[in-house]
Amino acid sequence: MSRYFTDEHEWIDVAGEIATVGITDYAQEQLGDIVFVELPAEGAVFEKGDDAAVVESVKAASDVYAPISGEVVEANGALEDEPALVNSDPEEDGWFFKLRVADASELDGLMDEAAYKKFVASL
């Protein structure tokens, strides 16, 4: 399984044709206490860059974009009951949704973990 990162602070785990998407530890730290996550419906089809989810912290609402194109096959229902999972475990149990990858070549432009770490350090 490979993990990719975007400059919008999302992570993507790709296993076969399924990609799991969440926000990074850096992102949750910046957002602060998360109180609500609005997730996409199963079957929703996104182009890369579409608004896919909304994460609400105490202070503000922020969009989460689809990092690659694809169809939503599952959303993380655990976040409805416990949105704070995004704060406590952003890069594992706090995942947002799973996509069936439409175009694997879109992954080529994304960062690997080392590149993302370097990117965050430069902010």
């Binding site: 503000a60 922020s62 974009y65």
Partner: peptide
């Protein structure tokens, strides 16, 4: 992610 209505 983009903040919609951050105080900033």
């Amino acid at each position: 992610m983009t903040g919609k209505d951050d105080v900033a």
